[in-house]
Design a protein around this nucleic acid. Structure first.
Lengths: 119, 119
DNA sequence: GGTACATTTGAGCACATGTTCAAATGATGG
DNA sequence: CCATCATTTGAACATGTGCTCAAATGTACC
């Protein structure tokens, strides 16, 4: 809990720019956006999205692929699904997951461009 | 440490699809990608990027804007800078930060579309 | 040099997060 | 109904993470 209304000395504080920025922040879904990126910000989840980008896979395929337990995969898939990044299709005992949204591939692709650009 | 080479029963294991997925994963910078998204996945950092998207701001402006200490902002800016998301410009005692890369705005925008699409 | 102020850095701490294991649920086929 | 297998769910735990505070660094101006 802080109320830093005097972080800078008053002379150097520029209210106009800060106010403009504040409006920018207010009309942007900052929290949901951070939530979304947080979901994407895990190697297992990024790996899952990459893996199923070329076709659906079931939970145990993914567990095998990333050397973790089915439980771990299931936990992550639940998160991904809650954020509408993947969708499930049941076939008998198995459940197949695939990408849910075109934005996902776009985000991954744009992110890849950024990290590759840094050499 | 797990070696789950037998997560599924052998009959239901489909080597071709998994192998295809594995190649997909291998030729994708999964870890750096996850790192990038992890950096974006925090409300303060997403807020900073949004705030400076309309023009540079100094550390104490940002601290004021988000009601945290300059120290906290500085820590986050260091992270953002390490991932080439922001760049710094010194002017006297103050340091102004602005977006470093066009990809950043693109990612934010695409992410916004996704979260807004969910109603 | 010395003071003032903005920023950075480091230590410490409260809290979130990803994993595993084990138990529960769902579905198929005797 | 019972057995089997895939998945899901819950509890527990080790590890990360983001914040604050305090000290250090950098810059300007006297």
């Amino acid at each position: 809990m802080v109320a830093p209304s005097d972080v800078c000395s008053e002379k150097l504080f520029r209210p106009e720019e800060v106010e403009r920025a504040r409006e920018m922040v207010e009309q942007t879904p900052v929290d949901p956006l951070a939530e979304l990126f947080k979901v994407l910000g895990d190697r297992t989840r990024t790996g899952i999205l990459t893996a199923i980008s070329s076709g659906e896979l079931c939970v145990c395929d993914l567990a095998e692929l990333f050397s973790v337990t089915p439980g771990a995969i299931s936990h992550q898939l639940r998160l991904l699904k809650a954020h509408r990044l993947v969708k499930a299709r049941r076939e008998g005992k198995m459940v197949f997951y695939s990408l849910d949204d075109d934005h996902v591939a776009g985000l991954m692709s744009m992110g890849s461009d950024h990290v590759k650009e840094g050499r």
